[in-house]
Every structure is written in structure tokens, then in C-alpha cells.
Design a protein around this nucleic acid. Structure first.
Lengths: 117, 117
DNA sequence: AGACTTGTTCTAGTCCGTATAGAACAGTTA
DNA sequence: TAACTGTTCTATACGGACTAGAACAAGTCT
């Protein structure tokens, strides 16, 4: 499991961490039941404080994606997964509307690129 | 034109202001060429500082939705087509969800490219 | 049982973005 | 000219994000 962080991003570090794990689950990089790296280990690897990582993990727990237990660590809940399918569906709806307006692929992807920036 | 603000929202006030105007354009509440309320007036109406409103307006200018000129005020650009604004809003929503999932810009644009093909 | 690991909780401090406030400035309009 | 409107500047206050260190509690492993 790989977690990347951008210190220059306006997004809070804890949000970036939870997003990275969320993405891993959504894409299938992280399987349900799998253990996440220990908070102290990940904090050291990212050059970030322990509490920052814990906060990201706790956000994931609040969403029901992972379980946190002392001694055991953070574990992806067995019933976690979809999300990406829903996103893909939203993309289709968006693309249909864009096509109806006569926008090109380049124009739409550029809008996405701008919005992501 | 009606702009609503929620002081308790975690979203910054300037972002709420620009979002409200963006939505107004998208839904057609605000027509292209129409003038937005003066920054000082809107600030007083919302119980907010002048600079906060101006910042929201400037965000809209950065997106190409409005023009700002001294003495004239804020004016919705003639080419700010409501439909496109609506699509832009949809893109924003999609991008927000994608970001929440931790997807990269490349991954999202690729999903769009596939869907457009 | 005992040692170790891991999340939990607490206090405390720094840093930065948000928002406020006031003032002076520069185009636009009537 | 006079009033209006965005622009720019300085300054202050507040809160969230992040860091830091420590003690604590539940689970794991030998």
C-alpha cells in the first residue's frame, strides 16, 4: 500500500491521507480485511506527525471503511468497496450532457483538469 | 439575485458567495450581462466584510464568469452561457467526489476520455 | 505472565488561512 | 464635478491544521 502526500497542497494532510487510503480501497489496491500500516510507521514514512495520520484513520473509521483497535492497528472492514462504480456512473451522466452541448472531448477533459487544479 | 450564506458552514464565506453566484448563473437566475449587487451592498446585506465579497467575486472572474471594473461593478460575462455554467458545476461536483476518493487528475480525465469515445 | 505493539487521550505550542477593519487610490458613470 | 465601485495596502483577531511529548489501555506474541 502506497500513500503519497503533497505538503504544498491546500488540502489538509489528514484529508490527503484518508483520501489515499480511500482511493486504495476504491481501486482495489487495498483488499477488504487487509491491515493498513501502523500509524507511527506511516507517520515516519511520510515525515508527518503521528496525530495527523491517526486523524486520517479516524476519518476513515467514521465513514465505516476501517476498524481501529489498539494493539491490532487499522484494518479495512470486510464490507468496504464500491464508490468507484458510482463515480464512473456520474462521469457518464456528465459526458452525456457535455455531448448534448456539443463540447469536444478535449474541452471536457480540460474542464476537469482545471477543476482538479 | 439572492445570495445565502451559512456562517456555521465549514466552507469559507468567500467560497460560499462565489458558489451562490455560480449557481445563479447556472440555473438562469442571473442572466448574462446582468450586474451583480455592489460589493459594499452585498457585504452589508450578508453582514460580511467588503473584502470577503470581493474575494468571492474575484474567484468568479478567475473562472471567466464575470467581469469586474471600477465604477461599473461586477457584470456577468455575455458568453457565460447558463448551460455551460451548469456543466461546470457538475464537473465541480464530480471532481469533488473524485478528490474525496483520492483519484488523480490523470485517472479522472482518463475516465472521461473513455466515456466520450 | 511478561514484553511489545498499537491506538487513545491529554496538554501545549506554532503556523497559516479566513475574516474583519480602516484608509487611500483609480477608473466609471451621471 | 460628484458619487459610485473595484483595487490595493496595512493591521489585527480568531480558529483549524500540524507538531510535539507524554502517559495510558487494549490487543498480540513469545
Amino acid at each position: 500500500m502506497l500513500v503519497r502526500i503533497d505538503p504544498d497542497s491546500p488540502a489538509p494532510l489528514h484529508a490527503q491521507i484518508s483520501a489515499a487510503v480511500r482511493r486504495g480501497i476504491a481501486v482495489g489496491e487495498i483488499a477488504p480485511g487487509e491491515r493498513l500500516p501502523g500509524a507511527r510507521d506511516l507517520a515516519a514514512a511520510l515525515g508527518v506527525n503521528l496525530h495527523t495520520v491517526l486523524r486520517g484513520y479516524q476519518e476513515l473509521r467514521a465513514e465505516g471503511l476501517v476498524e481501529l483497535r489498539r494493539g491490532r492497528g487499522a484494518q479495512v472492514r470486510p464490507d468496504a468497496a464500491p464508490a468507484v462504480a458510482a463515480l464512473r456512473q456520474a462521469v457518464h451522466a456528465l459526458v452525456d450532457e457535455a455531448r448534448r452541448l456539443g463540447l469536444s472531448t478535449a474541452e471536457v477533459t480540460e474542464m476537469v483538469r482545471e477543476a482538479m487544479a
